[in-house]
Amino acid sequence: MSVWSEPTRQRATEIIGRYPKRRSAVMPLLYLAMAEEGRLSEEGMREVAEWCGITPAQVQAVASFYTMYKTEPVGRYLVSCCTSISCMLLGADEVLGAIEDQAGVPDGETDKEGHLSVEHVECLGACGGAVAVQVNYELIEGVTPDRARALVDWLRNARPDVVNGDEMQELFGTRRSFEWAIHEEDGAVGPYPAFQPLGTVGR
């Protein structure tokens, strides 16, 4: 009945094992479901329901509460531009506009090729490095409209298999909230956070 691959099933078993109660694994398993299919499908939610011993409606109630579980198809690169207060004060609306223009994708939508999705988001915790933009939850700080346009072009043309925050920061960012001297290899391979082996490479 399961739609999940064997390694994913193993991961699911392992994740559930970490928590005192099965239901607590809903959130990580939802990410797992997204990693499996690139977005959160109904099938994926049904599967999570079975693993956690709850109904699909209970899973959807949780999944739809959070903004990072995407039930609509998302592009390979999810570009999130912070437009909360601190970033807004430093031009976030203009940066978002530049991204929309260059990508030809309005806020909240995905291009036809399934390549780029654009969204505005609330505060990313990078206010000292406003304007903040994330690609697949890998952060770039100090983004300006010009740099945002260059970022979109780069995603279009270079089509990196892994998006890496440090690399993008060097190419498209300016001021950061704080210094970070070490270069990190890990990055995201899909529109969900690269955490633990989930969509992470470079280890």
């Binding site: 988001v121 990313l124 994330q134 890998e138 925050g165 690269a194 955490f195």
Partner: peptide, 12 residues
């Protein structure tokens, strides 16, 4: 928080 994937990796 979910958007802190890099900090989460570091902590993990």
């Amino acid at each position: 928080r979910g958007e802190y994937s890099k900090p989460a990796r570091r902590v993990q």
